[in-house]
Design a protein around this nucleic acid. Sequence first.
DNA 1: AATGTTGTTCGTATATTTACGAATGAAAAT
DNA 2: ATTTTCATTCGTAAATATACGAACAACATT
Lengths: 99, 99
Amino acid sequence: MAVETKKYTDNQELIAKFSNALGHPVRVAILQQLSKQSCCFHGDMAEVLPIANSTLSQHLKVLREAGLIQGEIDPPKTKYCINKDNWHLAKGLMIGFFD
Amino acid sequence: MAVETKKYTDNQELIAKFSNALGHPVRVAILQQLSKQSCCFHGDMAEVLPIANSTLSQHLKVLREAGLIQGEIDPPKTKYCINKDNWHLAKGLMIGFFD
DNA sequence: AATGTTGTTCGTATATTTACGAATGAAAAT
DNA sequence: ATTTTCATTCGTAAATATACGAACAACATT
């Protein structure tokens, strides 16, 4: 019946979740690229970033699971975009956090 | 002779470093408390937060090493404050990052 | 049907993170 | 001098993160 007491506020959990996603420079680089242009293909990022293809997939998954990006298959490529709703949510939370 | 090529920009590294420090809800809680009032004692935080004393010390160390807080011994207690310079730096970086 | 392109997932190794209690250190109070 | 208070560091365990190449899946092209 879930008698668990919540240890942290939703606000704290969300800030931590989004921050965590930004906690690796390659993910910062990915998001900077995606927010500059509207979308980007996996392959194009893979050419530029100093990591293996499979590692890029992992980082994209982290960003997807944090809700900051969304991917769609656009055969034969995979296209990633910023998830604007959550991007704005994150922005608002971070601005609120830093005052 | 350090022939290493830098993989990421200073901006990306810094954003990742600060974000990393914000990547755990208890550290978000600590910083929210510290930014609300000017300073806070370890002991007062330990009473409120749902973690062991030694774990709190570790988290405070993470925040210190990220440059977001600074501690000083105020016998018999330890007092922590926001590092305002880096706080503002982080704020600026995050605002720039999110546009 | 066989091949090629694109990306993900799997398997694995290594490093880091998170957590706790025990031990320690440093300073104050008795 | 001994004890108490406060916080850090140590030792350890378990979980998560990061990285890579190999294997795989999906789809297009030949």
